[in-house]
Amino acid sequence: MEFARTVKYEAELNKSFYKEVVESSGCDKVLECIQCGTCSSTCPVSLYMDYTPRKLMAMIKAGFEEDALKSKTVWICSSCYSCTVMCPSQIKITDVMYALKRMAIEKGYYPKSMPTPVLAKEMNNIISKRGRNSEMYVASMMVLKTNPFGMFKMAPVGLALFKKRRLHIGMEKIKNTKQIKKLLSGLKKREAK
């Protein structure tokens, strides 16, 4: 019988992880967490998370970078801002979730089975190029890229929408796409400096 160690040694932690988080937008108060658990109890989806929001705050402080970024928690967060409003330490927990999402994508840690990052990327792409989103296109791309058989599961919803004349297949485009291009490339250049 083999025994696996489930707790990390201190040497395996990234003790400065919290610094990275604190510097992200809206995350400046993350160290003020008092571990009261109000966030987890007010969260409508905490029971589906592998780490509850309270645990995640403790993990950030302690340096469990890999575990935090690999967790499904941030992808299950539906950003309803209940925790943010309730937190007695005024931590913008929803913004912390967003920051962890971005880090997880950047560092390649996000769980490959989660469709959310794929959805986000597809949406960004189409908005940057056309200025408008297309619900149908983005939803289809998400399903095709993560679970192609999911298309069958989507079919009844599509059919119901079609019957009610709510299926919009056209792709909209704004007139001044050049302006969006200029805005985004200008911002990218400044951020790189």
């Binding site: 971005r102 994508i105 986000a120 908005i127 408008r132």
Partner: peptide
């Protein structure tokens, strides 16, 4: 143009 919804904040906040 589209506001970017919640998805854009999850990939590039600025």
């Amino acid at each position: 143009n589209c506001c970017g919804a919640t998805a854009y904040f999850g990939t590039d906040e600025k």
